[in-house]
């Protein structure tokens, strides 16, 4: 007993030193859960998360990233399973792009119940348990598109909005931003805003053909709020000989096809998001929270207008061709 009392301070110091050493050597294990794994959008998110990991490593903060999408892409139940499996794996934090604003609420609430902080990226969740929501300001994206279209048309002309789908929150916000901004230009007349392109390029192409069959002679400008409607509408305009800027076309979300259309001047502007930054900021946010530092409830990852004029600028190139090779593999 006496010896123990004598050695107690030494033991205690040793213990404190050991725990301090352990804390310094702590590896944060973060699960980053996308909606699917094969789309380039999600690869950019992944690359952004890796960038955050490398920067933190340079500051001496060790982070291990588990990158894992649902086994079947776009399957809500499978994404719930992935969140649950990482919950019992006791990761330190989760960065999640929820496939559904309602269905993923319960697993996120459960994760926070056992003390795992969750940061939501890309699409919103109907919950107040998330540390932060890191995503595009879609309404702002729609405003940007309307202002660009007004500039292209000199403030006057007939305009069509081809909508994407009922119930898709992000594109509805873009459409609302577009329509609200359009009201600032009294000489821009909206001749159609009630048609939907749907989920695939084929359905969007058909809807565009039908729409242009009706309004093709009157229309001077078009806005399409996502990737499939942008590509479908551009193709339909080209078919009718309305490409090359005869009808001004503004789209949303860049990919190989829409960038080629931009270079051919069949599209005069594309509003793009920044998925790379979503992965980057999302990962940083969860680590900041774990280190006890405050994190803003909403982080805007920005929207940018890409045109033929600014396409070759390095900042724009980094947006439309994110440096995936540098971070993945």
């Amino acid at each position: 007993m006496k010896t123990l009392r004598r050695h107690l301070p030494v033991l205690l110091t040793l213990l404190v030193a050991m725990s301090a050493w352990a804390a310094a050597d702590k590896t944060y294990r973060i699960a980053v859960i996308p909606k699917g794994a094969t789309h380039e959008f999600w690869k950019s998110v992944h690359a952004g998360a890796i960038k955050a990991q490398r920067e933190l490593a340079a500051q001496g903060v060790k982070v291990e990233i588990f990158w894992k999408g649902p086994l079947k892409e776009d399957d809500r139940d499978q994404q719930i399973q992935v969140v649950e499996n990482f919950m019992t794996r006791r990761v330190d934090g989760i960065v999640l792009a929820p496939l559904d604003s309602q269905a993923l609420v319960a697993p996120v609430v459960n994760a926070t119940k056992v003390g795992i902080p969750v940061v939501i990226i890309d699409s919103d969740l109907k919950s107040d348990k998330q540390i932060s929501f890191v995503a595009t300001d879609n309404y702002q994206g729609g405003c940007l598109a309307a202002e660009h279209l007004a500039r292209l048309l000199g403030g006057r002309g007939n305009v069509i909005l081809l909508r994407y789908a009922v119930g898709s929150a992000s594109t509805e916000q873009r459409e609302a931003g577009f329509l609200d901004t359009l009201k600032k230009y009294p000489d821009l007349k909206l001749i159609s805003a009630d048609q939907y392109g749907g989920a695939t390029r084929e359905t969007a192409y058909q809807a565009s053909q039908n729409l242009l069959n009706r309004y093709g002679r009157d229309v001077q400008g078009v806005f399409a709020p996502n990737e499939t409607t942008t590509i479908g509408m551009t193709k339909a305009l080209r078919d009718l000989g309305k490409g090359g800027g005869r009808v001004k076309m503004v789209g949303f979300d860049a990919n190989a096809q829409s960038l080629a259309d931009l270079k051919q001047n069949d599209i005069q502007g594309i509003v793009v998001q920044n998925p790379f930054r979503m992965g980057y900021e999302g990962t940083l946010a969860v680590i900041q929270h774990l280190q006890g530092r405050p994190v803003p409830k909403r982080i805007d990852t920005g929207v940018t207008l890409v045109t033929l004029e600014n396409l070759e600028q390095p900042a724009i190139q980094a947006l439309v061709h994110p440096p995936l090779d540098q971070y993945l593999n």
């Binding site: 399957d75 719930i80 559904d100 269905a103």
Partner: peptide
């Protein structure tokens, strides 16, 4: 059970 788990009815669930 699927309904209870998703807390919604989803016409595209359980493909495959």
């Amino acid at each position: 059970m699927q309904l209870s788990r998703l807390t919604q009815g989803d016409p595209t669930v359980a493909i495959g």
